[in-house]
Structure formats: C-alpha cells, structure tokens
C-alpha cells in the first residue's frame, strides 16, 4: 500500500507493507536511519520522533497510522551544518558515547525544552525516563540538557 508523509518538511511517498512500523518506513523505505531500532516496544526511546508535533516512539506507530501526517526526526533538527543547541550541548557536555541512544534523547530533550524552557533537574529526569542509555550513566546527558536550556532562546 502507498503511504504519504511529510518528513522533515519534505513530502514523501513510499510503498509499504502492512505491518511495517513507522520506524521501519523511516529507516528502510525513506533512508532516514537516525531513528534507532533498539527495543521495538517503546521501552528505550531510541526511535523518538515527532508525529504531528507529538513526541512518540516510531516503533509503536503502525505505518498506515501516519498517513498524511507530519513527522520530524533527528535529521530534521539541525539546519544543514548548523547544529541545534541541544545537539551542540550533547557534544559539549560529553553526553555521547556509543551514540545509539543519542538521536532519541536529542528529540526527547528538544521536546522537553519546547514545553518547558527552564526545567528543574527532577523535571529533566522525569521527561527523559523513557530514553535508555547504557553507556553514560546519564550524568552528562543531564548536564547537556541543562546547558541546552541555558542556550536555547
């Protein structure tokens, strides 16, 4: 079946098989590999994207459910070479190790800061509880989000 989507501001159309998730479509059909496949059940947040402005796990969206929707992935957050302040902060803070959780965390942190520009530490922790990281122990991620909050206009 055909699926039409607006992805990162661009209108895309692709053939999909019923049963494919939005995550599969983004990755394997549209070549947007930034959203990661780590758990396939919404537990790790590595596939976090915006679906019509809402933060969701792309692995839990059946492709057809996204028909005609607007999707923003991690690839849509930077403008060419210019990184988004959240991305800058992750680099600056040393919040990236293997990096597999990073795209999802950046989208989730982006969402948090768009709703709450000055989150407390507890608010950051609660907002990012659905994004598992196995490398960093989260300390630098916390720092990165706090840094981004200071630099995000």
């Amino acid at each position: 079946m055909k699926l039409r989507l607006m992805v990162n501001g661009e209108s895309r159309e692709t053939e999909v098989r019923e049963g494919e998730s939005l995550l599969y479509v983004l990755r394997e059909r549209l070549g947007l590999f930034g959203s990661k496949n780590a758990c396939e059940q919404g537990e790790c947040g590595s596939c976090s994207v915006y679906l019509d402005g809402e933060l969701v796990c792309a692995c839990l969206v059946l492709a057809g459910q996204a028909e005609g929707s607007e999707v923003v992935t991690v690839e849509g957050l930077s403008e060419g070479e210019r990184l988004h302040p959240v991305q800058e902060a992750f680099l600056e803070a040393g919040a990236v190790q293997c990096g597999f959780c990073t795209p999802g965390l950046i989208v989730a942190a982006h969402d948090l800061l768009s709703r709450n520009s000055e989150p407390t530490e507890a608010e950051v922790r609660e907002a990012l509880a659905g994004n598992l990281c196995r490398c960093t122990g989260y300390e630098k991620i916390l720092t990165a989000v706090q840094m981004a909050a200071e630099t995000t206009p």
Partner: peptide
C-alpha cells in the same frame, strides 16, 4: 585534554552509520 569525539557530530545528527543502518 577533553578532546571531543570525531564521530560526535554525525552521532548527534543521526547520520552516524551503525551496523544496523547498513544497506
């Protein structure tokens, strides 16, 4: 020094190619 990761920029942009991204 706290040198940054050479793979850091592609990782934060979602462009770093993991083995599961190969095609």
């Amino acid at each position: 020094e706290s040198v940054g990761r050479p793979d850091g920029v592609p990782k934060v942009k979602g462009e770093f190619e993991y083995s599961s991204d190969l095609h």
